[in-house]
Design a binder for these strands. Structure first.
Lengths: 226, 226
DNA sequence: ATTCCAAAAATTTTCGAAAATATGTATTGC
DNA sequence: GCAATACATATTTTCGAAAATTTTTGGAAT
């Protein structure tokens, strides 16, 4: 793996987790010290992340971590609902046994982690399994473009979820677990209408929670904009 | 404008127009000579284009123009129909007079160019106005994420359309003009169902044509996959 | 003829310094 | 005191060369 690839992974990781907070200037000398490499691989990574909208760039004035905004969150959630609903329907239509087994497996692993407490309750493992579950639902949609957009939107919304998860220890953990279980159940039963309705509700609930914690009180826009 | 930005624009331009054909290796020494700059700005541009899937990269083995495939075209068209239909509905719901005027203006300019013959029949002007028209339809959707995905998918499908446009001089030009007019009419009348139906038909017809010219005879998949 | 290996060549990747630009600071003039 | 300007510093951007890796070439062994 080249240094540029390592830089990309590390920067993306640190931005999504908020270790590099939104709006923070990404000065090359700082990054060079932090990640122990020269400017070249860092600039390449920053350019890739710029194309993914995780960093912003201004000509001759450097890079910054892309800012967060309630508007962007609402937009991302609404587009996610559209795209993932379509993808879920396609998956339900054409998913095979391996797809179904993948969902069962991902849900099981996710629930194990949701139930864990104490030192084993690692929030990053939880996040990884949450992603894996949602990704597994769409795995059979047979549309690379859809999956890429899913990934982009997941990364974008994850930036809003992480600080909330870090602040409160497992907010409504059991509740969410139930939602995931019901979503998996409807999906495996090939009930596309029910599954997409649950998916939408799941996202709207999560987004409402995030929007509230974010301190800006406009949760109604989530439904209005849909 | 920095050299890296110029490199990005030039490479994107040349890839979409097919001057750098699909699959072609993008060697830095070649590019350095072609665009008259050093390696650094070129590598930055290539990394951005990689994130946009217009070029592929393999560790230590360089960059290539991303290949074309019928599967990718079908996928892109289907996802475009979903995303643009939603965006068109949103635009129709919330578009104001400026939005409507923008559509009228873009359609007028497009038709002017469609009708031109001889030395004025510049295919690149036509392409730009075609893009501007479709962009104008969605301008009021109020969703940056949707517009970004539209742009990505437009660029991806443009790569398939260009060689066809270049081969045949204005294939079914007047026909397409009629389609655009009808689409604009339904949109301005705020008839979302009719407008999205026309949009879908427009894309399926275009994609069928492209798929046929592309030599692979599976146009039926376009409907089956939808 | 074919496979294997080593050397040569070509290419990508990375660094460190130079050039270009932006930012901050002191100083001058009013 | 305040704006404008010149200077110094900090930062980004670009280049050219060095390092690392892959690809090609040429020949030897089977």
């Amino acid at each position: 793996m080249t240094l540029a690839e390592k830089a990309y992974d590390a920067l993306r990781h640190d931005i999504i987790r908020g270790e590099l907070p939104p709006g923070r200037p990404l000065r090359l000398s700082d990054l060079s010290e932090r990640y122990e490499m020269g400017f070249s691989p860092l600039r390449e990574a920053l350019n890739r992340l710029q194309a993914e909208r995780l960093v912003t760039a201004e000509s001759l004035r450097g890079f910054r971590v892309a800012p967060l905004s309630l508007d962007e969150l609402l937009d991302a959630v609404n587009v996610r609902i559209r795209i993932e609903s379509d993808a879920l329907r396609a998956s339900i239509r054409s998913g095979d046994d391996a797809w179904a087994a993948g969902i069962v497996s991902a849900l099981y692993a996710l629930n194990l982690q949701v139930d864990r407490t104490g030192p084993d309750a690692d929030i990053w493992t939880l996040e990884a399994r949450h992603y894996a579950f949602h990704r597994a639902l769409l795995a059979a949609c047979n549309s690379p473009w859809t999956l890429e957009f899913f990934e982009r939107l997941y990364a974008a919304t994850e930036r809003y979820r992480i600080p909330v998860l870090l602040a409160a220890a497992h907010p409504a953990g059991r509740d969410v677990q139930g939602e995931h279980g019901a979503l998996a159940e409807a999906t495996l039963a090939r009930d596309a209408d029910k599954a997409t309705a649950l998916l939408e509700e799941h996202y709207r609930r999560t987004a409402n929670h995030l929007a509230n914690v974010f301190g800006m009180k406009r949760p109604d826009e989530l439904i209005a904009a849909g």
